[in-house]
Simulated assay, not measured.
Amino acid sequence: MEWSDEQRSFVAAVREFCSREAGTRAQRQELTDGGREPHSPELYRKLADLGWLGLSLPEEFGGGGAGMVELCLFLEETARAMAPIGGFTTSIITAAAYERFGSPEQKKLILSGVARGVIEAIAMSEPEAGSDVANLSCRAERRGDEFVVNGQKTWCSNAHLAEHILLVARTSGRAGDHTGLTMFLVPTSTPGLTITGIETMGGREVNDLYFTDCVLPADAVVGEIDQGWRQLMAGLNMERLILASVMLGTAQRAFDDVVDYVKNRRQFRRPIGAFQVIRHRLADLATEIECARLLVYTTAGQVDRAPGTVLPRETSMAKLKATETARRVALDAMQMMGGYGYATEFDMERLVRSSVVSTVYGGTSEIQREIIAKTYGLTEQLQ
């Protein structure tokens, strides 16, 4: 890709920062309680002080006013460095929803907070509604000037770190309807909200949320009542490109690490990278990474040129390609490293875990394929 001098300088600055602050495994272990916490508040504060957490947010809220391309560059570079800032993705995705649909007061609270380093989270999935978002049943019932929320959310990333939850709940209709969904701003300190962590291979990342007679004021509504589905669709460009950029950086890191390994690991009196079977596998992986990179940044450029346009085909392709590529690269790299790729004292096993789950969150690979197919007029005909 061709970058401007300013973009190249920005990438170099991010790379230097990550190398200095989290460039060694020992540093990352110290920042993450031995790898158990994907997010380091200490490192996050330093990024906030540099102004990078608000990179893509409006200047009036303390942001940098940069575009999607610059945000993707930041995400790719920090992911390649394995910088433990797991709270950033949900925060910037959530901030974008408030930027588009929030009231002036909500924008000031959330956008300026994200720029300062406040973590935000969004709650959509439920035990019976994952890929099928229309099946949401967590309900917010109108009672006078308030809403009373009851129900459960699950797999909510970073809720345990967040100051607020962007809740998507049903305000009318029944489960299975795309209409009748509404977004709400819910402080995590709200009575009636319980946050319970879910143990995963990635450490403390996701949570169950339980709402029991949780009372919200009328001004907690984000956007319009019953228009949550339309509002969610408007944010797909950013969400998919954010996830694609993170996995692009993850794929590059796995590739860089395995190349370094095969150049130094000797078997049968020569480096294993000298064997044709290894060389050709790595050539294929490098090609796939570059294909993913071109797709991600071409799509990001389209978003910057037409910010209000939803690009379901292109963004789904970018998310599908980047996450599937990251998974393939990490799994192949683990095999080429043998037992060292499997051992927890090396980074590769972490890269494998994060890349495998990337094909599930934010819309599974199967859902992305369905979306792409529909843009070509290919739909299943129900009998």
Rank of each mutant, 00 (worst) to 15 (best):
R139V: 11
T194M: 07
F184W: 02
L167V: 10
L216H: 00
L166I: 10
E324Q: 13
G144E: 11
V357G: 01
E60L: 08
I122H: 00
D132M: 08
A274M: 08
I195N: 02
A244M: 04
R80Q: 08
R80A: 11
F255K: 04
R353D: 01
E120Q: 15
L243M: 09
E314G: 07
R25Y: 04
F10S: 13
Y44S: 02
L209V: 13
P217R: 12
F101A: 13
I85G: 02
V258N: 03
F17Y: 14
C291V: 06
G176E: 14
R36Y: 04
L311W: 15
R25A: 07
A159N: 09
G203P: 02
G102S: 06
V14Y: 00
L71Y: 03
R204M: 12
W3R: 15
L320D: 03
R279A: 10
R25L: 11
S19C: 10
E6A: 15
I85S: 04
I122S: 03
D260P: 00
T89A: 14
I85M: 08
W3S: 00
E21Q: 14
L294H: 07
G130I: 01
R100N: 03
R139H: 09
G180T: 06
E6V: 14
F147E: 08
A244D: 09
C138R: 06
T171E: 06
G180R: 03
Q381Y: 09
S354C: 02
A286W: 02
D260G: 12
S131D: 14
R100H: 05
E37A: 11
S365D: 07
Q227T: 03
L248C: 02
G377P: 10
V148A: 03
E146D: 13
E205Y: 14
T171W: 01
T89Y: 05
E21F: 10
E380S: 11
Q252R: 15
A274C: 09
I371H: 07
G102C: 05
R281D: 07
K374R: 14
A26G: 00
A343Q: 08
E128W: 11
A66C: 14
G34F: 13
R170E: 09
A13N: 13
T179D: 09
C291T: 05
R266G: 00
C72Y: 08
D226N: 14
M238C: 02
R204L: 14
M348C: 01
A96T: 10
E99L: 15
E128D: 14
M348F: 02
R353S: 02
F184G: 05
D219R: 10
E146N: 12
I110P: 06
Q368W: 00
I165H: 03
Q106H: 09
S4V: 05
M82P: 01
L50T: 08
G273D: 07
F147G: 07
A66V: 10
E70K: 03
K263T: 03
G102R: 03
R279T: 05
D5N: 12
A286C: 02
G301Q: 12
S189F: 12
F101W: 12
A251N: 05
V14I: 15
F88P: 05
G117H: 10
E199M: 09
R116P: 01
I278T: 13
G151Q: 12
G249C: 01
E349T: 06
I372V: 15
L161I: 01
Y342K: 09
L193F: 12
G62Y: 12
V221Q: 03
V360T: 05
C18D: 10
R270D: 00
R174T: 09
A251D: 03
E141I: 15
R20Y: 12
E324L: 06
G173Y: 13
R174V: 04
V215R: 10
L216A: 05
